[in-house]
Nucleic acid binder design. Sequence first.
RNA 1: GGGGUGUUAGUUAAGUCGGUUAUAACGCCGGCCUGUCACGCCGGAGGCCAGGGGUUCGAGUCCCCUACACCCCGCCA
Length: 602
Amino acid sequence: MPRFITEIKRTHSCGQLTQDDVGKEVVLFGWVANRRDHGGAVFVDLRDRDGLTQVVFEQDVRPEVHETAEKLRLEYCIGVRGKVVSRGGNVNPKLKTGQIEIHAGDLEIFNRSEPTPFPVDDQIDTAEEKRLQYRFLDLRRAPLQRTLMTRARVNHLTRNYFTGQGFLELETPFMVKYTPGGARNFLVPSRLNAGKFYALAESPQLFKQLYMIAGFDRYFQIVRCFRDEDLRLDRQPEFTQIDVEMSFVSQDDVFEVMEGLVRTLWKEVLGVDLPRPFPRMPYDESMARYGNDKPDLRFGMPHVVLTELVRRHQGGGVPLLLDAVNAKGIVKAMRVPASANLSRTEIDKLEEYVKGMGAKGLARAKVNEGGEWTQSPFAKTITPALRQAVNEACGAQAGDLLLFQFGKESTVHTVMANLRVHLAKRMGLIPEYGSGGQWQFLWVVDPPLFELDEESGKWAAAHHAFTRPRDQDVQYLETDPGRVYCWRYDLVLNGFEIGGGSIRLHDPAVQARVFQAMGIGEEEAESKFGFLLDALKMGAPPHGGIAIGMDRLVMLLTGAESLRDVVAWPKTQKGTDLMTGAPGDVDAKQLRELYVKSTHEK
RNA sequence: GGGGUGUUAGUUAAGUCGGUUAUAACGCCGGCCUGUCACGCCGGAGGCCAGGGGUUCGAGUCCCCUACACCCCGCCA
């Protein structure tokens, strides 16, 4: 009897055969996705990454093969040889291959399978903990296979696109020098240099700039990055960036190249034509209207900043608001349309929700026909003038609910930003994936170069120290650093930051003034970034670039609910790998070789 | 570091007001079945109710602690 694999080669995939193949002798390899044993005939749905094909084993055609087929169980890995037969009027419309079936003449069981800890089917309702523990089985399921195949396609299309645009795919080191500030680094102890450490690169940032200075002109890389920060739904400790840098470019040039990439991906993967150019919004407007720099523009409910209004009305009879304004805080409101129809209980729940984010409470006002407020802590004391002004500013109609936050600026923004998204979900304003849902791309541009560090009172680089300030703002570097805006940009899609970059500061003289403003002395700058500062002095070209969060992009592209669904081997929220058990203990000997001693007490 | 949700059979869930033998579906095991495709029928096995402590005559159920998973704040230039 001939042997599968060595003598009998696979001829087709399980998603390939159609009516046109009827009569062919074919060989399929795959896994038993389902079996239906009717005694004299056994039906098996054979699965590979391409699809399902029904295979029939009949007792009175090949008794010995049928006998083996009776032993088949779910997830057995098998090879089948047989004839493609039309199913005539008995087609299965749910299957791509539903017009045909295979009448098996030969069968080999490559490997049996123990009962799997959860069903390997398309309906994923297994606890994620179990899925991550048996990730290889989870990945056998069609939805995850489709996602990873899309991811592979994104990789391929990206390489094609950039190569076609004259970019060079160049590599950068993972093991780099530790630099304080920014994201926390994973550290790698050096065996050959006692007491010294490498850091795993949080991005190729400085190296890609050095490629520009070296003259490579156009660089891209699909590269793994590492950051030892707390995890989120859209954050993994190791993640992949589509990293890009270009010489002799303006912000518009960068946008054009990147919009071209994104448009290509959406067209090729989804068949969607994205409008061009992508809209842009100044950073300050984004903060004011949406409370963060990554607004989801698929729905409205913008914030209304009332700080000036309250100031003008000297509090308008509401001491709390006046206090907030006098303490350099801000006041924001959001109009929730009457249609939301929030119950008292629901609003109380919202209050608990915002308190979890540091809010002191959730002031509210129900607007009635006359524009008066009810169910509001402000109702009794607020002056009609301020009330009317607020109603007008918010565009409040009878039946609407106004929600307020006031106090520390950053808290107000965070709370209101999350509240807006929370309510939109509750109100069903966010289109579901595949429902003709919109793709709201947005460039958030023109942010301040510095932000005030609340603890130290010092100006710190809002992004990194090598972002180019706007030429007209350079004059304020010494006198009013908060007034200096810069060539920094984020690409936002549906409320997720999927990329960010900047035009770099290539002028060493301005660079020195930026460090000065941040309180970084020449010596400190030299020790941290000496090599880059040297390089900037030796004919550095004007340059800029961007990095796209590839995992996030694929997550949104595929409608996945979490980064973990687009990363083949993800970590849990505590950074562990439930399959391998990483991170784990190491031998004392290894630690000694690395000059490392743990201070952890068990 | 903080706030929230959850943990019951291999899986997904139910379990009322604290009450005596903890249910169901799917899966698994045995048997029957030649047109199923969520196959069907008959029979069966399967439980440290996450772990620990407490309240109680009595705890899956109430309280406290811990662990793990998930969501969020902080953090992530």
